[in-house]
Amino acid sequence: MGRLTVNRPVVKITLDGEVPGERRRSDALAVEEPLEIRVGGHALTITMRTPGHDVELAAGFLVSEGVIARGEQFRSAIHCGGPGTGGPAAGTPENTYNVLDIALAPGVSLPEASLTRNFYTTSSCGLCGKASIDAVETVSTYDVATDAAILPAADLLAMPDRLRAEQAVFGKTGGLHAAALFDAASGELLVAREDVGRHNAVDKVIGWAVLADRLPLRGTVLQVSGRASFELAQKAVMAGIPILSAVSAPSSLAVELAEASGLTLAGFVRGTSMNLYARADRVLRR
C-alpha cells in the first residue's frame, strides 16, 4: 500500500494580533495518486485516489458501473508495473502500485471497449436528467424499493459522528472524504473508508462487500461525509443499499433518482435534525 500522507513545509500566517505572526512548519497532506484499473489486461479507467484498499475500490467501481453484481463474479486482482508506475516494467526497482489488473470469473462478460471511461452513470460525463435515471434503473440488479429496512431517527443522527471517529487520516490532514456502511437493524458499523474522492470512498465500501460476498447490501445505511450527488445515489442503488445519509445537501438529480428507485435519501444529517427527501417512511420518528 502506498503512502496515505506526506509532509510539506508551509508558511503559516496569523492576523489575530496587532502584529501579524508568521512561522514555518511542516503540514501533513493527504496523498492523491492516479490508479489505472484494467480488466483482463485492458485499460478501463483512471481515477485519482488515496492509495490503500485499491482492490476494494476497483471491485466497488465495477459494481457501480454494472460490470458485476455479486462477489462470485470478481475473481482476483494484481498490482502491476507499467510506464509511469515504477517497477521492473518501467526500469526502476520501485513499484508505486498505481496499476491494478482485475480478473473476472469465467463466464462474466468483459466491459465493452466502447465504454472505456465513457460510462453512462458518471456525473462527470455530463449526463443528467431522465436518461441517466432510466439507465440506472435498467442496469441495476437490485430493487431497493422493496427493502424492508427501518431505523430510529436517533440512530441515523448518530452515524455522522460515528463515521468521523473512524477518519484517522482526515484527523491528520483535513483533506479526505469518508463513507461508512451500517446495519440498519442493529446500528453496527460494518466498514468505513477514506479517500480524496467521495465516490472512491463509497466504491471502497461497496468493494469491501464484494470481497466479503455480501451483495446485495439489503438492510444497510450508507453514510457519507459530504453532499449526496447523483453518482453516490446511483452507487447505493447499484449495490442494493436502501438508505443513503449525507451530512450535507443532495443534488436535485440525486433526489429524483431516489424517488424513482425507492431509495431513502437523508440530507443535512447533523446534530438533532435532518431532511428526508425520499422514502421517509423508513426513518422512525423516535
Rank of each mutant, 00 (worst) to 15 (best):
G82M: 02
A239V: 07
V31A: 03
G267K: 00
A266V: 13
D203A: 15
V99T: 12
V283Y: 06
A154N: 07
A77R: 05
D54N: 11
T50I: 05
E65T: 14
A278W: 06
T96M: 14
T116L: 12
V247H: 01
S252L: 12
E32C: 12
L127V: 07
A154G: 10
M159C: 07
T220H: 13
H53I: 02
G2N: 10
T122C: 06
P88S: 15
T122H: 11
L57K: 11
S64Y: 02
Y142N: 03
A154E: 12
G21N: 07
A154T: 14
D161C: 09
L211H: 07
S248M: 14
A154W: 03
L163V: 09
R24N: 03
G60T: 02
R198I: 11
I241E: 02
V63I: 11
P106N: 06
A180I: 02
L156Q: 07
P20M: 04
G84E: 12
L190V: 13
L156P: 00
R270Q: 15
E194Q: 12
A28V: 04
F182M: 06
G262H: 00
L222F: 10
V67L: 01
F230K: 09
D281A: 09
P250Y: 08
C125T: 08
G82K: 06
V247T: 15
A158Y: 05
P9I: 06
R282H: 03
A185P: 00
A201R: 03
I102E: 00
P216W: 04
L244V: 08
F230Y: 15
V63H: 03
A280M: 10
N118W: 04
C125A: 12
D161K: 13
A145R: 12
R23Y: 11
Q167A: 13
T220D: 04
L190E: 08
V210S: 13
L100T: 05
G86S: 09
E259I: 00
V283S: 10
Y142V: 02
L222T: 04
V10R: 10
K204M: 14
P111Q: 09
V202F: 05
V139W: 07
G86L: 07
L62D: 05
R70L: 08
G84D: 03
V283F: 15
P242K: 13
I78R: 13
P83Y: 04
D16E: 11
V202C: 13
G262Q: 00
P93Q: 08
D134H: 04
G129T: 05
A192K: 08
G240R: 05
K172G: 04
V221G: 05
A168N: 09
T264S: 15
R38P: 02
V19R: 13
V67P: 01
M238G: 11
I133M: 08
L15M: 07
P88W: 11
A236G: 05
L211C: 04
L104K: 14
V55M: 00
T96W: 14
L157V: 12
T121W: 09
T220I: 04
P111I: 08
P93G: 15
L217N: 01
V247N: 03
I133D: 04
D155Y: 07
A184I: 00
V39L: 02
E231W: 00
A228T: 01
D213R: 10
I243K: 08
S273K: 10
